[in-house]
Design a protein around this nucleic acid. Structure first.
Length: 751
DNA sequence: CTAGGGTTAG
């Protein structure tokens, strides 16, 4: 980074020179045009050219250009060096045109050191050469250096062309320095080159990057002869500034004026369709791009695939992916992220789980393909691991990240912290957090929430105070973590304090999530009247979660009158969460209110509540094993039940009493019946885990519905009897069983 | 001269 005084120097120098040279634009322009004309030399085929070079045959100077161009397309620095060597051998390094082009070539290959060396050895340095070096620095994310070159150029007495000015503006755009940009723009206006197409394009882009769409559109309007780049720039400006719809309008106008979009235009429009989730428009653009001959364009294919993913048509996306012969890393990343995103919105846990394992499969395919994953890949994969509670895969990914050096990236680091926390290892999560060299709001929030979910309330609150001391401003989500920490520990006083702090000090409006934490807290403490008071105080209607918390609390604390009232409210909302139907059925059943039981069942049919699936699953190595209640399909069934019966006996001798717990069982395909069962799916999965993992390894089980009280008691005893850590993540929270205790404080199970 | 597509907390 260079200081502001340097910019002032640039401006001062620029001011000096532009006064003397303002008349000479025309002349510089001709130089460009002359250089742009490569004459009537027959272009060489790449292979032909390269073999001539290897044989040492002399080739014409102008033939080097298409040859080098092909090297760029193939992104092959080694081939560039071969050609460069030949240029020197044949004495063509005296040719200013070829050598200037070589500056571009090295810049495009990302090696600015080489580009600089060629530049300083040029036989003659003209405006095009200066501009090439500047462009190189802008492209390689060193805009400050581009401005330095600009200054050198002016001091050397060279005349900036329109393209030079445009490049200087581009450097300002990358630095997001509207100040310097404005200054240069002022001179552009003064010397009336504003209506020039390439200058105007750059100015339009500058204002878009600086966040003023209005100025960007004005700059666009002032361009006399708008080309496809001008249109693309203004369309992108709309997209970048959250006005995708306006961008589409510009696109339509562009088409009606007979300007043909190119690959850039099409990809920009397609990604805007993705953000707007307008699959229909996007597909029309896709067929337009096929008509225009871009059917095999990888970039357009990536965009269309991403469009499908965003709009939830994952199968279409997968089909497109499978049909692509050539893919880029972005293609892989998009399909992995797409599957990861589908985990959230999947209809049921089993299909969500399927999405996740699919994503991990694609990731290992990517690794086998020889392409190197990057920080985007790793962030997505870690997210998938955390959602699947796939600790082993997460550890492997962690190792791979260490090897490839992406751990220094703050997003990857945050995803890693989150993965360990979600997979039950708060120790490694907090270790990874401490080791981060930089933390964002999201990192802090993730760790606070991690502590809260693991029942480490005090640590969550301490960390929150650290965060404030570090000068990071909490947001709504941070406070959800803080309040849930208070709620889990029953810290009423602290909860109310933080709730007030959030509103008064940080001006954050409470959302339902915040109230849910508070109401949950009062309900757990059996302070049902206070919970009800709080509900009355909210400035929005109580939602499904809030009523269901109240119903659950009333059942637990035996306040049936309030319980039935809350249940009525819940029924009125026609809940979406299958767990709530289960809870209501349980309540009415134990109260022997048969009419209400059938009322709930009818509502379930009416609302098309999918069958409640009591699946549990466990991942061992790369395989995932799933279990239904009383599952006997598994090949190891005999061993599983034998171990389970042994454990039940041992537990009973220690005072564990099996309790009747109800789950809805699928007896035939049509009807769900209510029945009690000892062999709940989580018991089976835990036993299976014991049989198939090392004695020291923690057992990780996921369950699609809340754990019941019986399984919770049983697994507590098992954890102390066997000395194994057992982690069950159910649909509500994480339960970490260690030495007979659960991190949820025994308030976190279902019925 | 446009420089596009993919990531983290709930």
């Amino acid at each position: 980074m260079i200081g502001r005084s340097c910019f002032d120097k640039v401006i001062a120098a620029y001011r000096r020179v532009i006064r003397i040279t303002s008349i000479s634009y025309k002349r510089s322009h001709t130089i460009t045009q002359l250089n742009g004309n490569s004459g009537s030399v027959r272009p060489l085929d790449f292979r032909e050219g390269l073999s001539m070079i290897i044989e040492g045959t002399k080739i014409e100077a102008a033939s080097y250009v298409p040859l080098l161009q092909e090297c760029i397309n193939r992104n092959s620095l080694s081939e560039v060096k071969i050609v460069h060597g030949h240029i020197i051998k044949t004495g063509t390094h005296q040719d200013p045109f070829v050598m200037t082009f070589l500056v571009n070539v090295y810049a495009k290959c990302g090696t600015m050191e080489e580009a600089k060396r060629v530049f300083y050895n040029l036989p003659r340095i003209n405006a095009v050469a200066w501009t090439s070096l500047m462009t190189g620095y802008v492209q390689n994310s060193q805009p400050e250096l581009a401005i330095h070159v600009f200054l050198d150029m002016l001091e050397a007495g060279a005349y900036p062309t329109n393209i030079t000015l445009g490049t200087a503006i581009n450097a300002c755009s990358s630095m997001e320095s509207s100040k310097l940009g404005n200054q240069i723009h002022a001179y552009i206006v003064k010397y009336r080159t504003e209506d020039d197409t390439s200058v105007g394009n750059s100015v339009c882009s500058l204002y878009s990057k600086c966040g003023s769409l209005g100025s960007a559109i004005k700059a666009f309007r002032r361009i006399r002869e708008k080309n496809v780049i001008s249109w693309t720039t203004v369309i992108c400006a709309c997209g970048e500034n959250g006005e995708a719809f306006q961008g589409i309008n510009f696109f339509v106008k562009m088409l009606s004026e007979g300007i043909e979009p190119n690959e850039f235009t099409l990809t920009s429009i397609l990604s805007m369709c993705s953000t707007m989730l307008s699959l229909g428009v996007g597909l029309q653009v896709h067929s337009l791009s096929i008509k225009l001959g871009y059917e095999s364009s990888l970039r357009i294919r990536n965009c269309v695939m991403y469009l499908y993913l965003r709009c939830g048509s994952i199968d279409e996306a997968q089909k497109l992916f499978d049909g692509m012969q050539r893919v880029s890393l972005v293609t892989w990343n998009a399909i992995i992220a797409g599957h990861a995103q589908m985990i959230e919105i999947a209809k049921d846990d089993l299909s969500a789980h399927h999405r996740g394992t699919e994503a991990l499969k694609i990731f290992s395919k990517l690794n086998r393909s020889g392409m190197k994953p990057d920080l985007y890949t790793f962030s997505s994969v870690l997210t998938v691991c955390s959602r699947l509670v796939a600790l082993e895969q997460g550890e492997q990914t962690h190792a791979q990240i260490l090897k490839t050096g992406f751990l220094s990236d703050v997003v990857v680091g945050t995803a890693l912290v989150n993965m360990y926390n979600k997979c039950g290892s708060i120790e490694r999560g907090s270790k990874a957090f401490v080791e981060m060299s930089m933390r964002t709001l999201i990192s802090w929030t993730s760790m606070i929430t991690g502590f809260a979910n693991h029942g480490h309330s005090q640590q969550a609150l301490d960390l929150f105070e650290d965060m404030l001391l570090a000068g990071v401003r909490p947001n709504q989500i941070t406070f959800v973590g803080v309040l849930s920490a208070c709620s889990n520990a029953g810290m009423v006083h602290e909860a109310l304090n933080y709730f007030e702090m959030m509103q008064k000090d940080y001006k954050i409006r409470p959302v339902p999530d915040h109230f849910e934490c508070l109401i949950d807290m009062f309900v757990r403490l059996g302070r049902l009247e206070e919970a009800l008071d709080f509900i009355k105080k909210m400035d929005f209607e109580p939602n499904e979660v809030i009523w269901s918390l109240l119903v659950g609390g009333c059942r637990r604390h035996g306040n049936m009158e309030l319980g039935f009232y809350a249940a009525e409210q819940l029924l009125k909302l026609k809940p979406k969460d299958p767990d709530n139907y289960l809870m209501l059925l349980g309540m009415y059943l134990s109260a022997e209110r048969w009419e209400d039981v059938s009322r709930v069942k009818n509502l379930m049919k009416e609302e098309k509540i999918s069958k409640i699936q009591y699946w549990s699953w466990i991942g061992i190595k790369d395989q995932v094993y799933s279990f239904k209640p009383n599952d006997r399909l598994h090949p190891q069934s005999a061993e599983i039940y034998k171990l389970l019966d042994e454990l039940l006996d041992r537990a009973e001798s220690l005072g564990y009493k099996s309790q009747e717990c109800f789950e809805l069982i699928d007896e035939d395909d049509e009807e769900q019946t209510f029945s009690s069962t000892v062999y709940h799916s989580e018991k089976l999965a835990v036993a299976f885990g014991m049989l198939n993992t090392l004695n020291v390894a923690p057992i990780l089980v996921i369950k699609s519905t809340p754990m019941c009280r019986d399984c919770h008691n049983f697994i507590k005893v098992v954890s102390s009897e066997t000395g194994r850590q057992i982690i069950v993540r159910d649909s509500k929270r994480i339960h970490k069983f260690v030495n007979g205790h659960c991190s949820c404080g025994d308030f976190g199970f279902g019925l």
